[in-house]
Amino acid sequence: MATRILFLGVAALVIIVAGADQSPLQDFCVANPSNGVFVNGFACKDPRMVQANDFYFGGLHLAGNVSNPVGSKVTPVTVAQLPGLNTLGISLARVDYAPWGINPPHTHPRATEILTVIEGTLEVGFITSNPDNRLITKVLSKGDAFVFPMGLIHYQRNVGYSNVVAIAALNSQNPGVITIANAVFGSNPDIPTDLLAKAFQVDKSIAGQIQSKF
């Protein structure tokens, strides 16, 4: 019985640790991308060389350029933009949306996201996993927040006639993003067209036509 309890405790601990970035073991570990050592994250900059700017990012007050096919722009603040985030398990992003612009269906493989609307009206939604594939959606106004569980496909759409600004926070220094359409139809090399046609239950020519756009 004691062995079983110990096993379950260890299993629970593994699940908790695997659920987000690991906790740091020191005050900070400012990322040093130029270091050739491969670790899960980035090697640390010499603490004696660390400066205030290693923990600083400026520019989130600036609107993103939304003149693109989807009508949105994500300005990320991950460890790639702010080296001081290394090992701290957090990041954020500003998202700008043109009227009726979208942030296309995507996932963050390493993070849960909470999004707050700063200006405008935004439709948000996520899809539960198989077999239900249930769409959970809501329209948010200024000051509202919504959470997208880790790994689930989600999207946002501006449903108003003015620009929308939102701030997203994520519990990973490098949450990653997989945009579904780009990944499936724009992979390198291409996924075979006949496979896509069978997966989406469409004619092969239609699958090829969509693939050609990516």
Rank of each mutant, 00 (worst) to 15 (best):
D132K: 09
G58Q: 13
L25C: 10
L170W: 01
P104R: 06
P131S: 08
L195H: 12
R4W: 04
G101E: 02
F38T: 15
A63V: 03
H154S: 06
F126W: 12
I127M: 11
G58L: 00
N158W: 06
L13R: 02
A145T: 12
T179C: 11
G143D: 11
A31P: 08
N53R: 15
A169Q: 10
S205H: 08
N163Y: 02
G208T: 03
R94L: 12
F200V: 10
I191V: 15
L62G: 02
D203A: 10
N86C: 06
W100M: 09
V159W: 00
G71R: 07
D96K: 02
D27P: 09
N32W: 09
A199T: 15
V202N: 08
V17F: 14
A43G: 14
D190C: 03
D190P: 14
A145E: 05
Q26R: 15
L60D: 04
D96F: 07
F148E: 08
P47G: 03
Q211I: 04
A63T: 01
D194T: 11
N65L: 09
L60Q: 11
T121F: 03
I210V: 15
G143Q: 05
I90F: 13
T128M: 04
L60T: 08
D54K: 04
K213V: 13
P149Y: 01
I178W: 06
R110K: 13
D54S: 04
Q156T: 05
K73M: 10
D144G: 00
V159R: 07
T179A: 12
V74W: 00
D54Q: 06
S212Y: 00
H154D: 09
D54N: 12
I210G: 01
N35I: 09
A197M: 06
I102C: 07
K138T: 05
E113L: 11
L135G: 01
N68C: 08
T87C: 13
R157Y: 01
R110F: 14
N40Y: 13
N163C: 03
I178G: 07
G208N: 01
N163S: 14
A111F: 10
Y56A: 02
L122P: 05
S172F: 01
V139I: 15
S162A: 12
S141A: 10
K142M: 07
N86L: 00
L60E: 06
R48E: 12
Q209D: 13
I178M: 10
L140I: 11
V77Q: 05
G176Q: 04
K213S: 14
S141C: 04
T179F: 03
N32P: 02
S72N: 09
P69A: 07
V10S: 10
R4H: 10
G101F: 06
S172E: 00
A166K: 02
T3W: 08
A199H: 08
P175V: 07
F126C: 04
I118R: 05
E123L: 15
